[in-house]
Design a protein around this nucleic acid. Structure first.
Lengths: 207, 207
DNA sequence: TAAAAAATATGACTCAGAGTCATTATTTAT
DNA sequence: ATAAATAATGACTCTGAGTCATATTTTTTA
């Protein structure tokens, strides 16, 4: 009975088609532009049909964010080099992270949105799991660093993951919207990032 | 001509009355509940009247956030003790900050929202200035620390302000919505905050 | 292969809430 | 007392998310 399989495949393809349209629509203008009607028009489906494939608009945005996280996790894994200390690898992860925020600003912005939004308003989705794939890479590297003695171990690797990720999150707003502080305070964005690294790297070393 | 003065005073009072009602309404439920109609009902004015005193809903929320920043700046000033090193005072500021986030969660949440929102969607308001009163306190303390040799001076005080404030911002989400990572990763919130402090304090020291 | 059943798709409709504006009421100036 | 200016009103418009009775297409059954 190949019909069931074929139907499932079609369903997946349609879902993907909707996401592609959504990506184009939602990433088009600045900010939160783009309506469900726009997306429907783009995929040439009726609005009602969208709701057969996604519960609501947030669901679609969440799926786009997930896609971004997957890209990020892949890139992070890509820069790991066995042979370096955990601390050195951590530094490389940081660089890659900044690069991601620059290269995929809209995905990053979306991720940030889900990370910062109050959990309950993201109806249905368990947004606390969104970053998991990327955070696992970070966690592994920190563990390596704690083993090889390049990273302090007076806090658990979980604790350090949360701390570093939270700090990074805060810092990276400034990449998305530099007009906020960067231009306001007449400072140089790369220098701020470098400063952050210096402080954190010094801070997570031992003793 | 005392009429003009009186009218102005009335206008200010009405504005304040609206803000009081708005505070009650918007800080009532969880999240982004509360409509302009609700606020109008609360102050016993028509909705149209609200728009004589505020350009839009965002304007009202911004005014509430400003109030929060003023409270915060006062509290921060309150903990400064001459005689301590800049680094020691910085640590006290941090504690006070966390306390503020705990004691005024809704104000803090609102501030966070404006800090993280894309500038352009906060139509009209120059949200990049919102935190200025609080950041000035931070800046002064860092300058003191750089003078007394307790804080590194290979980055300008402006740069360090942005770095520390951004990091703090990221971290403090976890206070507002602990269910996000704290419970997820089975770590203890106070320990995460302590870890952050340890790392940052070690990181901003000299050499 | 035709009719029945099931699965998909449609778009007009509802609903909520922000913001507007012609009208009405009140206050001040003449 | 009347005209002009100022302030307040709330019914209305507008936008956009989400729904649902109806229509179309696909699959099953006989």
């Amino acid at each position: 009975m190949g019909i069931a399989e074929r139907k499932e495949k079609e369903k997946r393809q349609r879902r993907k088609a909707i996401l592609n349209a959504a990506e184009k629509i939602f990433f088009a203008g600045n900010g939160d532009t783009g309506t469900m009607d726009d997306v429907a028009a783009k995929v040439q489906l009726s609005k009602g049909t969208l709701y057969l494939y996604f519960r609501n608009k947030t669901d679609i945005l969440y799926a786009l964010a997930e896609k971004g996280v997957d890209i990020l996790a892949d890139k992070l894994k890509g820069v790991l080099i066995a042979g370096l200390t955990g601390k050195e690898q951590l530094s490389d992860l940081g660089d890659e992270f900044v690069r991601f925020a620059e290269d995929y600003p809209r995905h990053f912005e979306l991720i940030l949105g889900f990370e910062l939004a109050e959990p309950h308003i993201k109806d249905g989705e368990d947004s606390s799991q969104l970053m998991e794939p990327a955070l696992r890479v970070l966690r592994d590297v920190i563990l390596i660093g704690q083993k090889d003695g390049s990273i302090r171990h007076d806090f658990s690797e979980q604790e350090i993951v949360i701390i570093l990720w939270s700090q990074m999150l805060g810092l990276l707003q400034n990449i998305l919207w530099p007009e906020r502080y960067i231009s306001q305070y007449h400072v140089d964005l790369p220098r701020v990032i470098k400063g952050h690294y210096r402080i954190v790297m010094k801070g997570i070393a031992i003793s």
